[in-house]
Amino acid sequence: MKYLSNVVSLKIIPELCVGCGTCLEVCPHKVFEMRDGKAAILDRDRCMECGACAGNCAFGAIEVDKGVGCASAIIHSLIYGGEPVCGCEGDSSGNKGCC
């Protein structure tokens, strides 16, 4: 399944990529492929912005606006401020347990 098309904030900076392949390994949605020794985006609509690739690229070649794709977390952060995170604890967060 895919979510909305063309909204994802994922970006590769090809000049920084050394083609180590780590991002291909950590991405749970097979967003990347190797093209001519560098990582390239195969299907950006599959990306859920989990940030695994960016956090594990030792060369800073990936940028993504990491966050949870969870409406209640986002609503909560809009009302009460702070980053949207999974609201798994406490009832006040209007949570529904993403777990």
Binding site: V7, P28, C47, M48, G67, V68, G69
Partner: peptide
């Protein structure tokens, strides 16, 4: 969307 495994923050 909070329970899915494929929705991203920007989209939501």
């Amino acid at each position: 969307t909070g329970s899915t495994t494929f929705t991203g923050m920007t989209g939501v």
